[in-house]
Design a protein around this nucleic acid. Structure first.
Lengths: 191, 191
DNA sequence: ACGGTTCTTGACCATGACGTCAAGTAAAGT
DNA sequence: ACTTTACTTGACGTCATGGTCAAGAACCGT
């Protein structure tokens, strides 16, 4: 992958780069299910070339997912990690992930696992998952977050938010954000 | 509508009935967006006939929505109305509506307002909406439900659940139900 | 500048839905 | 029984997507 066995021809190299760039733009804007023809159009290339060079949607996604998504997800984990209070840390993490799902359709698609069988994507998912589970456990240890919440619950709350964010096209961000708080409060133990 | 201006021919009457029945079955099973061709198949009729008799999906839905949906929605309102405690009443109502959305795709489609411009459908929606708003106000009066929850919030929580229920195909009902409770708890004031 | 490769193209097929209409079929009236 | 009229049919056109491949274009080494 890093050093292709046979060096590409100049036009091919140009196209690979152009397609990657176009995919970054289009996917960022409309998510990983954008029509490949749109990517081709933006890249100034025909869709056949995308299939040729990347083998199809899956290959193309794998070629951009790191740059497109990884940083965003890991950034949230890191930022949250610096918060001292475990409850605040857990809630901050979830809230930021949920907002990211609203703001970045591509990230959302990754977290929703809409691409079965793509290893790089699965890895990113797993990372978010594990981070959430860790923060959850720490928050539960304080007694402020309900003990009966399972890591799987959190997974599914992220999944649910993803489904909603996807449908939220016309809905204002502020309302979306507002309702996140209800769910977060619901995870706290009754005092 | 009740007494057609010109009496239908025998086969036409038979077909109208057959199509209505088929639509009830198919819509109940797979929601109001089922392919009309499927309805036609079940009715043993060609899809042209559906367009002919009902004018298209909207007409067909309006012909069955009362029987298919109205009872279910109103039933929940009535049942909840008999609960004495306002908080319990409100929470029971919401919970039951949410479960109905999971169990009955057709009801869900109605509550999601996926049929713009259909009056009978709008009426049902409005009913659910107003009932929820009334129960909310009464529950808030006790101080147990947060005062900053608006009727619009409740509307949107129903909308959100609908979007989720629609995507829940493979997800177990028990998990869905479990997560409803987090949201309900989130609507309560901190004690 | 030319031949041999490598690349690209866009017409083509497939899918699954909606909606229409000319032509064929069946009921009703006499 | 036969005609008239109501009714039904299913092939057809449309759209939006995914994916393929023979034919032609672009590049590169000599």
């Amino acid at each position: 992958m890093s050093t292709p066995a046979t060096r590409l021809r100049a036009d091919a190299r140009r196209n690979v780069e152009g397609i990657r760039t176009a995919a970054l733009d289009v996917f960022r804007e409309r998510g990983l299910n954008s029509p490949l023809e749109e990517v081709a159009r933006v890249a100034g290339v025909s869709k056949g070339t995308i299939y040729h060079r990347f083998g199809g949607r899956k290959g193309l996604i794998e070629a951009v997912v790191e740059e497109l998504v990884a940083e965003r997800i890991r950034g949230i984990g890191t930022a949250a990690g610096e918060i001292a209070d475990p409850v605040e840390r857990f809630e901050h993490y979830l809230r930021e992930i949920w907002l990211l799902q609203y703001d970045e359709p591509a990230v959302n698609d990754v977290l929703l696992r809409s691409l079965p069988g793509s290893e790089p994507v699965a890895v990113l998912c797993e990372h978010a998952r594990e981070t959430a589970a860790r923060f959850l456990a720490e928050a539960q240890a304080t007694g402020v977050v309900r003990a009966d919440v399972t890591p799987e619950d959190v997974d599914l709350l992220i999944w649910e938010r993803g489904i909603i964010a996807r449908a939220c096209d016309q809905q204002p961000r502020e309302g979306y954000r507002r309702r996140l708080e209800y769910t977060l409060r619901g995870l706290r133990a009754a005092v």
